[in-house]
Design a protein around this nucleic acid. Structure first.
Lengths: 183, 183
DNA sequence: CAAGATTGAGTAGTCAATCTTC
DNA sequence: GAAGATTGACTACTCAATCTTG
């Protein structure tokens, strides 16, 4: 949107457009914030309530749902994780007594994920302190204008991401030569 | 900065100040961007160059250093990881032939981490495409004003985070009762 | 004993393959 | 065969303990 394609390039192969100073500064600062903010919130939540951020997200979504239960794929849509990650995570949470798996009557393939009493107690105990942590580190250091700006920024990036993931890639060039990581 | 402390609360214990609509919207949007953007960049870098974002960060820092080598703690300062994460990661990268560990002559405890020829080749091969990916998903969808806004936002958050991590916690209340996670 | 760094054990996440039901 | 979900194998990260040198 902001810049035209580079004049004189040939099918994008030649000189990459490196980031200029403003761009690099914003990108670096954003990445530092991203890493440090998540780490701090995670550490505190774990220390104060014995939950990871991932646990918290699952529990919040379940506790907002009617009857404290959701189909697994609905929960997956809400948290935007890979199916397998969700499944593994629920297995661990089930082992800890926070959620329970229930079969679905109308669709034999389906699973309901339900909050247990312990799970509900855990999220209710954790939430006030966690919200305070989010306020202290994030919300309360930003002006309303900054909150709105960040919202718009996020939406712009997300719009591009879903446009690209729907389609094939960043563009149609095929770039065959990269060595795949051996596993 | 933006809001006063809640009138009628008693030592912060009573009603938590939940997020209002603007705050919640920004927080949710930011988190979606954070998760999806990293995931997409990671996936593409891995697919096209066989490197993870973590590998990339290490290699960039080394290739910017004189002689392509740094003391481990300098590298750690640059990437802001835990010492043990860095050490584990370097072990894996060493096994893949991307870096090499060298002893330090003047400090027997110290280790130098050096880029191998393969490591330098890998980062030089990966960088142009990765920068294009960052441009496409992030830099090029934002206006210069938005880039500057994000820079300021990040700095504000980071300033609060380092103030808090330097000190004891979010505030002096001790909150002893949370059940620690059993391991 | 503090700084620099590594190790081990356990938890978490990813990719690909699989299983079952629609 | 596609949707809903799980499994297995592997890679990655965290915390606490350890080792070594200053």
């Amino acid at each position: 949107m902001t810049r035209q394609s580079f004049p004189g390039t040939f099918r994008g192969v030649s000189e990459p457009r490196w980031l200029d100073e403003r761009e690099a500064r914003a990108w670096r600062a954003y990445n530092r914030m991203r890493v440090q903010l998540s780490a701090q919130l995670n550490r505190r939540l774990l220390r104060d309530a014995g939950l990871s951020l991932a646990d918290y997200e699952v529990l919040v979504n379940l506790s907002d749902a009617p009857d404290g239960r959701l189909r697994a794929f609905q929960l997956g849509d809400a948290v935007k994780w890979e199916k397998s990650r969700l499944s593994h995570h629920l297995t661990r949470m089930q082992r800890r007594g926070l959620v329970r798996r229930e079969g679905c009557a109308t669709d034999g393939r389906g699973a309901f994920i339900a909050l247990t009493d312990d799970g509900r107690a855990a999220i209710e105990r954790a939430a006030p302190k966690h919200v305070e942590d989010v306020r202290r580190a994030f919300v309360d250091v930003l002006t309303p204008a900054q909150l709105d700006a960040l919202d718009e920024i996020s939406r712009a990036v997300l719009a591009r991401l879903s446009a690209d993931d729907g389609a094939g890639g960043s563009d149609p060039r095929v770039r065959g030569g990269g060595d795949r990581r051996r596993r």
